[in-house]
Design a protein around this nucleic acid. Sequence first.
DNA 1: CGCCTGGATGGCACAACGTGCCACGATGGC
DNA 2: GCCATCGTGGCACGTTGTGCCATCCAGGCG
Lengths: 210, 210
Amino acid sequence: MSARAPHGPTLTERRKAETEWEIARCAADLFAEHGAAGVTAEDIARAAGVSLRTFYRYFRTKEEAVTPLLAGGVRRWLKDLAAAPGELPVTEALERAVRRALTPEGEAEAEALHRTRGLLRAVPGDPGLRSVWHRVHATTEESLVPVLTALAREDTDPLDVRLLAAAANSAMRISVETWAATDDDTTNAPAETAVRCLRKLTAGLNVPRA
Amino acid sequence: MSARAPHGPTLTERRKAETEWEIARCAADLFAEHGAAGVTAEDIARAAGVSLRTFYRYFRTKEEAVTPLLAGGVRRWLKDLAAAPGELPVTEALERAVRRALTPEGEAEAEALHRTRGLLRAVPGDPGLRSVWHRVHATTEESLVPVLTALAREDTDPLDVRLLAAAANSAMRISVETWAATDDDTTNAPAETAVRCLRKLTAGLNVPRA
DNA sequence: CGCCTGGATGGCACAACGTGCCACGATGGC
DNA sequence: GCCATCGTGGCACGTTGTGCCATCCAGGCG
């Protein structure tokens, strides 16, 4: 389990990450095609080349199998936000992080974004998928709170921080949803829309500099 | 199925509503005590005096059994909002509706509110309950959109309406959550907090009069 | 009053979900 | 090469949720 500096993660760890990603990929494709209700956990497991038992070791429910897809951008978002320079106003830091999180860099991320879009289009009609989608956003909002608290001035009202987290989360969610609903394949990632939504929702909040 | 004016709903219909409420009541109590994972659907059915099969005719999942509790206030909220006089600014109508929805009138509602609070205290630690809680809010936000659209001026940007719905929903959710988390039993319903949150989140939105 | 239709309920069987348990095999340190 | 560790697969089991059919009761009609 030792993390050796030169080689990075262990072979086993790399395999685990690989397997997790493979399951998520298969699940997303199957869900997008047949809906979550039309796919059994065993279908996903078979498609990913693992046993049913192993599938449930990676994910607690079959719907949860797609969270790596949905939460991929979120991870980057939080990481960027946490690394924001302290002298930046919180809202400014949020805007930049949002912009970066929604702009795919590299081939893998662009493909992930494309796959996620296909999945999102199946969400509105599928109760199971809606549940995951909302759960991802709920956990995102919770993760946002400590990060924003660290970024804000110490005497900021905790309630204001929660509201800010909710505002940022809603801006992200709504802009991504509208983006996924459009048929226009040439549309850029919904970064600009998200920033506009964010500004409108945070206009009344006073969360001063770090 | 005929709805006779004098007697109101049919005997059968009244019984159905009664049964549904009874199941919800039992489910809420059991969940609050043992957590959703520690209660089987059969437990709820037995406590409510119905068969397992009947239980699943009323609710699609065992967690969903508590939605009548959680969505009770929401129904009033939407009804009040839809009945708002047209000359009122949308934000003002929202504030009044929020205030009224969070102020219990009558014994039954006060008791429902109390029971809901007990349930909400079990939510943070229980994945299943969190899922219902978020689902209720998601559907609330969706129901909010057409109502707000009707209230707003016709040329209002649909995106602004969605943001307003999200803002109102978040204000409601966060204030209720903080209220449920406090130990102070003398605290009034979180109406004032909700109105303050609402004002802060909607300050940047321009959704003009009806 | 007796018949009869519709709808709510209960019982049963069944596919799928999700978990505990144990055995096997590969990784990685000694 | 030995061994502890951990990921994996297989099996059994309780629970979830649904389809199907029999039963019972409310309420309309002759």
